[in-house]
Design a binder for these strands. Structure first.
Length: 482
RNA sequence: GGCGCGAUGGCGGAUCGGCUACGCAGCGGAUUGCAAAUCCGUUUAGCCGGGUUCGACUCCCGGUCGCGCCUCCA
């Protein structure tokens, strides 16, 4: 077994070689908590949850750190605009964020450090950078000096002289170089602040990840993940700080593709975002409320993590249809409690003898995930397994579906309650008990009509209900509606 | 201007030097009183021009187009 991962730093696929035998330290940049969660915030955790789950199934012990930026200019500004205390904003959004992660079955995060909990360590870290002559104190804070670094820009593949030529970097009088960035920002009156040798203030954005990752995972760790948009400047600057500090930092960098709409990235300053209805399409509450959390997880995993994902309504609806079909076929076995699969659990799934085609699909599932966590190709094998189950003799069917369900669960699909979560969005009012009783009566009367071969009455009932937005389905165990 | 990524069937989206990806939609069939649902089967590919090769969607070179980053972003 060898897991191969694409490393952004080397731009090559490399075999995963844990720094510490049997263990993986993984750090994934989390959100700045100043506003309601959108799908971009959830993408990283969901994707890297699948990564962590696969590592676990392959016998590795994963420490998965996902930080929270809970102090930042945006938070301060929001508080000023709304009057809500900044701590109240961050607490509220963190609770919301964790709620969504739970619904998406993100279960592998082991640490969720907050920036404000590590300010003392950050101050110490910055002091060391200043002492080493890699940072300098200016009028409004402490800055990292990029020109003192040999290979600044190696992650994103850019050079300082080229960047200087770029028209979009504005010269700031007190910076030694336009690419220098803040390690510590001195507070203006009324702003939240922490003490430091340079005066009260708050940490810069990039320093928190360098500090928290090394605090929790050590100065050298296995994997650093995040959205593709963080490659520069955020991750580049993390590397810069860590190297100046004397740390090896992350061996492998993984970047997930970003949210798109009709082929174009949906970003913070996208002109389309000015339209409230457009913006709403990407909010977590809208997506999860409309399509169900399992659909969103499924969609996120149905391609390759490095590719962007288009969140057009048609694509999401297709994902929902496909997932619903699988879940229905798998049935009750998805409702059993599911733990994150370890090596023993995966071994149990690989053990049963299956018909050749199903066996091939099962093997292909693992191969796909070993190959840079190709969840899309892996999911395709789940469909193949489901299809093979239908073709197989009755006696083998259950065994194939058990394997299919089990494998899906390895990447966090097919969890208890998923099918219900999918229908919850569409069947408005289904939870109404009185409506349920009325419907039971209506269907009973219709059944009587059908028994008498009075199809005119039977169809009248069905058509009228259809017009009212209720679909009647005759199954072999009686009719159902939704 | 610099750096990087991509171009696959009606749509989304993988793999692979010769063998069905897969899903959605469509079509045909089974089932059904008729539908729905379900199941089975199935049509439609690989930007353009060169090259390597017995053979390329797959490798190499060139072009075209699209996208991302170079500023806040997950």
């Amino acid at each position: 077994m060898t897991i191969v991962l694409h490393n952004t730093l080397t731009r090559k696929a490399e075999p995963l070689q844990p720094l510490r035998e049997g263990h993986i330290g993984m750090y994934v940049c989390g959100p700045t908590v100043y506003d309601d969660c959108h799908i971009g915030h959830l993408m990283g955790p969901a994707i890297f949850d699948a990564v962590a789950r696969w590592f676990t199934a392959r016998g590795l012990r994963v420490r998965f750190v996902n930080n929270i930026t809970d102090i930042d200019d945006k938070i301060i500004n929001r508080s000023r605009e709304t009057g809500e205390p900044w701590q109240a904003i961050t607490e509220r959004i963190i609770a919301q964020y964790n709620g969504w992660l739970k619904m998406l079955h993100v279960a592998t995060i082991t640490d969720q450090p907050r920036c404000t909990q590590y300010v003392a360590q950050m101050v110490r870290y910055v002091e060391e950078l200043v002492a080493k002559g890699r940072a300098y104190v200016a009028a409004d804070g402490v800055y990292y000096e990029v020109t003192r670094q040999e290979n600044y820009g190696k992650l994103s593949g850019r050079r300082l002289d080229e960047m200087e030529a770029g028209a979009r970097i504005e010269r700031d009088a007190h910076l030694h170089h336009p690419a220098d960035f803040a390690l510590w920002k001195l507070a203006k009156p009324g702003e939240p602040s922490w003490p430091s040798p340079w005066g009260d203030g708050r940490p810069g954005w990039h320093i928190e990840c360098s500090v928290m990752s090394s605090e929790l995972l050590g100065g050298a760790f296995d994997i650093h993940g995040g959205g593709d948009d963080l490659k520069f400047p955020h991750h580049e600057n993390e590397i810069a700080q860590a190297e100046a500090h004397g740390d090896a930092y992350a061996s492998c960098w993984m970047h997930n593709g970003l949210v798109q709409y009709e082929g174009v990235k949906v970003g913070k300053s996208d002109p389309r975002m000015k339209d409230a209805a457009f913006r709403r399409q990407f909010m977590a509450d809208h997506l999860i409320g409309t399509y169900g959390a399992p659909t969103i997880r499924f969609l996120l995993l149905s391609g390759h993590y490095r590719r962007p994902i288009d969140f057009g309504p048609a694509a999401i609806a297709a994902a929902k249809t496909a997932l619903t079909r699988l879940l229905k076929q798998l049935g009750q076995r998805c409702e059993a409690p599911a733990a994150v699969a370890d090596a023993a659990a995966l071994a149990r799934l690989l053990e049963p003898t299956l018909p050749p085609q199903a066996d091939k699909a099962r093997a292909a599932f693992c191969t796909a995930l070993d190959d840079d966590i190709n969840t899309g190709a892996a999911i395709a094998q789940l469909f193949t397994l489901a299809s093979e189950a239908n073709k197989a003799p009755e006696a083998q069917r259950g065994a194939i579906l058990d394997v299919c369900c089990g494998l899906g669960r390895v990447i966090g699909l097919f969890q208890p309650g998923d099918l219900a979560a999918l229908s919850a969005g569409s069947a408005a009012g289904a939870g109404d008990e009185r409506l349920g009783q009325v419907m039971a009566l209506v269907l009973e009367l219709r059944q009587k009509a059908r028994a008498n071969r009075d199809f005119a009455t039977s169809d009248l009932i069905r058509d009228r209900l259809k017009a009212a937005g209720i679909t009647v389905k005759d199954g072999k165990d009686g009719a159902t509606w939704e």
